[in-house]
């Protein structure tokens, strides 16, 4: 297949990353609920069992804590383990192996041992699924020293970040969103990495800096396109990695625009949008011409009923409104 003019969707981009990593390195394993079936993980694991066998592609009992610990233990023994939680909410049973163990491991063992594991967590918001199938918890993981956190918004970045995460010697939390799985774009067929910690400028403008990632990056793109029609120039940053994040790219943009809006598809209080704004206040306060603004979920669990979902989830309109408010 040519690496040019080939489009695949977000789910298949992840599938390709997993397949290529498993092909090139016999030490890569995939473990978690649903890897044998599209029921939980969409098309991301298509064909992996038949290609690599049930020894390396391990569908599991519903035991999130032990299965995550098993992935961490296999990584301590030198394998490169990817453990998937098909709903991010399920991973809360497994915070001990992620936070107490994997995140602290290299430090508390004085660099004598590392944990090359990927915690792949899928957000599955909307669809009246209510509070326990939909939570976006990247801020929680970003708070923890020793963890890296990535949150791609495009098929290209999903593949490149999954490859980078598997190759990284440290524990990486890879968070994606089922809302993105249908997106299609050109994706190189070869193996490539999107570097962890590097954001990307999606659109250039001089009026306001708009920072987002994961599913909110799509809404931000629509908002920027809409504002362009009205003559408002948005410098649009897709962060791609939440930790470490591309501080330099944001500061450079704010230096140019003097205005900052952060759109995060997670709760406002104690969230990552606040972290970004705090950093800009510390390092670029004199460049701000207006208050920096957060566009975040209301501090409220996700509701079931569609009438409430409509006001709970964020759209491009919310982003447009926030930007106009500070112009």
């Amino acid at each position: 297949m040519s690496s040019n003019n080939r489009t695949i969707n977000f789910g298949l981009a992840i599938n390709e990353a997993l397949r290529q990593m498993m092909q090139t390195d016999a030490e890569v394993i995939l473990i978690g609920q649903g890897v044998k079936s599209p029921w939980y993980v969409g098309n991301t694991c298509n064909g992996l069992v038949s290609d690599f066998g049930e020894e390396r592609v391990i569908d599991t009992p519903v035991s999130e804590n032990a299965m995550t610990g098993a992935a961490v233990g296999a990584a301590i023994a030198g394998m490169k383990a990817v453990v998937v939680h098909p709903r991010v909410d399920f991973v809360l049973y497994a915070l001990d192996p992620i936070i107490n163990q994997a995140a602290n491991w290299h430090y508390m063992n004085g660099g004598k041992s590392s944990v090359p594991v990927v915690f792949w967590l899928i957000v599955n918001r909307g669809g009246e699924q209510a509070a326990q199938h939909s939570q976006a918890l990247h801020s929680l993981f970003a708070h923890i020293p020793g963890l890296k956190v990535v949150a791609p918004s495009t098929p290209h970045d999903a593949k490149g970040l999954m490859i980078a995460a598997i190759r990284d010697q440290n524990p990486v939390v890879f968070i994606d969103d089922r809302w993105l799985y249908g997106l299609k774009e050109e994706v190189p067929a070869e193996i490539y990495e999107v570097p962890i910690g590097k954001g990307i400028l999606r659109k250039s403008g001089s009026d306001v800096t708009l920072v987002s990632w994961s599913a909110m990056a799509r809404e931000a793109q629509m908002a920027a396109d809409e504002l362009e029609k009205e003559g408002i120039g948005v410098d649009l940053i897709d962060l791609r990695s939440v930790k470490p994040y591309d501080e330099a790219l944001i500061l450079e943009s704010v230096r140019k625009t003097g205005r900052l809006v952060v759109a995060d598809g997670a709760w406002k209080t104690g969230g990552f949008a606040a972290e970004i704004i705090a950093t800009v206040c510390e390092k670029g306060f004199d460049k701000l011409k207006a208050p920096a603004v957060r566009v975040c979920l209301p501090d409220c669990p996700a509701p079931a009923s569609s009438s409430l979902e409509k006001v709970y989830y964020l759209t491009a309109c919310d982003v447009v409104k926030a930007i106009k408010h500070i112009l």
Binding site: N65, A66, G69, A70, G73, A75, I76, A77, A81, P97
Partner: peptide
């Protein structure tokens, strides 16, 4: 316990 299970899995 689960970590040792992981090294056993490896």
């Amino acid at each position: 316990i689960s970590l040792a299970m992981g090294s056993a899995l490896a």
